[in-house]
Design a protein around this nucleic acid. Structure first.
Lengths: 235, 235
DNA sequence: AAGTGGTCTAGACCACCGT
DNA sequence: CGGTGGTCTAGACCACTTC
């Protein structure tokens, strides 16, 4: 995070979040930002581009840089997922580990995780509560060649923090497939819902920056509480 | 589309799609691409960045540019929505108009569309079939100050084509809220499902490049067929 | 050590918006 | 027409991967 454009993006982002530009709904011009941060135009544009991607602002040629207001109360932003615990809009998250074991990759898993048949994988099943309501059931596989160790303490805190802060890995990108289905009886019981009720499901494939898949997950959301947010830019 | 980096992005994208790099799963280096297209490094990087955003490739510092393979058969890509008709993975789409009328924006609509109270809005209700199966119910409002005219023919072809090709507007970005719920009786009948069955719902807010909202929609998907795809980059 | 992508600079010209 | 963002260039140095 020591590079200039990221630092500048963080500063401007926090300015936006504390409402610094709320009177005009407009940011300073690129020219003004160049002077403010004493960097070249490309560096400012890289910082601005980051915030456009994150959905905070949009640019209009010939006119300026504007605040993009999103009604996102309680929504889970699909574009910025560091796991549920990274969601700033959610408070009071409690994770209960239901299962933790090591399995060998069968044909299907090996294909999904692009690893060799028989690779050791951690299987983790978790139930997560938000504000004391059952919110998700998460079934995950982690490649043990990449994540060599896991225990209950790590799992009930944040696996993502462990991977980035302790193991020093960089998470790069993710595919998310989203669909809806009827709840099975056992899932319904965990979520305090009824069999056959709707469920919102995300199947995740998460890559490190080097392209290795370290995690695939199936997350079943409580349909009464979960709202997802996806931001699209047409470029 | 006359700018260099977009042209280059299109060429490389079509190269990827026809499998030109499938032997190595790797693109030429930035250096080689600079020579191939006779442009500066920044221009190549801008083109490459476009394809990274679209989920086609990923870059690894010190190593190269790699093909990102996504199992996306039949999935609707949330990041590149030009309406259903723009989905290259879906064939044989038939649209049936159920309702078309002009309404005045009430308080809720005015707030959602950031327009004045009483603004004229087109309300459109459509049922869409993919491969002869009922796929979505779409309820949309269009700001008549921006889209001055609509008729059944336009609606049953592609409103997005009409807006971009005929009206020459540029669609800029969109917010999409995704959730699941139980189907009401009338919705269930349209989708040939049962009351209380799951539904996958997207509430869309679509902006022009100048930040004006021209469309909000609520799209109810048939849960048996619809799978959405969201691609995340951690930047 | 060589190869390859990541960051940054300085400057030029174009396209679009609003007065 | 002035202000502002969009595209493009040429070159420098750094960080990471690979051998």
């Amino acid at each position: 995070m020591e590079v200039k454009y990221k630092q500048i993006a963080e500063i401007i982002e926090s300015n936006i979040l504390v409402g610094k530009y709320n009177d005009t709904k407009k940011l300073p011009t690129e020219e003004e930002l160049m002077k403010e941060f004493d960097v070249s135009r490309n560096t400012i544009r890289k910082a601005i581009g980051t915030l456009v991607d994150r959905g905070h602002i949009y640019q209009v040629q010939g006119s300026g840089i504007f605040i993009r207001e999103i009604s996102k109360e309680g929504c889970i932003n699909l574009g910025r997922i560091k796991g549920l615990t990274g969601e700033t809009t959610l408070n009071n998250i409690v994770t209960k580990m239901l299962e933790l074991k090591i399995v060998k990759a069968d044909e299907e898993l090996a294909k999904k995780m692009k690893c060799d048949l028989g690779t050791n994988l951690y299987f983790v099943k978790r139930l997560r509560y938000v504000d004391n309501v059952a919110f998700t059931i998460e079934c995950s596989y982690y490649n043990k060649d990449i994540i060599p160790y896991l225990n209950q303490e790590i799992i009930e805190k944040s696996i993502y923090d462990y991977i980035t802060n302790d193991l020093k890995f960089n998470i790069g990108f993710a595919d998310k497939m989203i669909y809806s289905d009827k709840l099975e009886a056992d899932e319904a019981e965990l979520l305090c819902l009824n069999e056959g009720d709707p469920s919102l499901i995300i199947e995740d494939t998460v890559f490190l920056t080097n392209g290795y898949i370290f995690d695939i997950s199936k997350v079943t959301y409580n349909y009464k509480n979960a709202k997802l947010l996806s931001l699209a830019n047409f470029k």
